[in-house]
Simulated assay, not measured.
Amino acid sequence: MIVRIMGEGQVEVAESHLTELNRLDDELLAEMQRGDSPGFRRTLHALLERIRELGEPLPDDSLEPSELILPAPDATLEDVRKLLRDDGLIPG
């Protein structure tokens, strides 16, 4: 699956990693609901770092359709709330 991290580019991540990524996404959603800004920041960075570790960056000149769009590392709670679906940033 192709994941876009806003402000960074696209990464191809195997769908076999979705369960692990969803655990971080669930934690991020819970922290947002509690208004836990430090926890939110820590988990957002952990989620993005894990995607970078697991994924293969696409060339900068490649414009593939993104299946997931994730916020930039400096996104605020409010920025991320605008991107959320009922089940978090990552479906499933």
Rank of each mutant, 00 (worst) to 15 (best):
Q10V: 03
E64W: 12
G55L: 00
M1K: 02
E78M: 11
H45Q: 12
A72E: 13
G35S: 06
L68Y: 14
L24T: 08
R50H: 03
V80S: 03
A46T: 13
F40Q: 05
P57T: 13
N22D: 11
K82V: 14
R4M: 11
D36R: 03
R41A: 04
P71K: 01
E8H: 09
F40I: 05
S62A: 15
P57R: 10
D86Q: 13
E67W: 04
G7W: 05
I69G: 07
E20P: 06
L47Q: 05
L24I: 09
L63H: 15
D60W: 08
V11R: 07
G9Y: 04
I69C: 11
G55D: 02
L83A: 10
P59F: 09
D74W: 13
E8C: 07
H17A: 15
R52G: 01
D25Q: 02
A72N: 15
F40T: 01
P65I: 06
G92S: 06
L48E: 02
E64D: 13
G39L: 07
L18F: 11
I69Y: 04
P65F: 04
L63P: 05
I2H: 01
L48C: 00
R85G: 15
V13L: 03
H17I: 04
L29E: 00
L28I: 01
R42G: 01
G55W: 00
L44N: 00
L29F: 02
I51C: 00
H17C: 12
E67V: 03
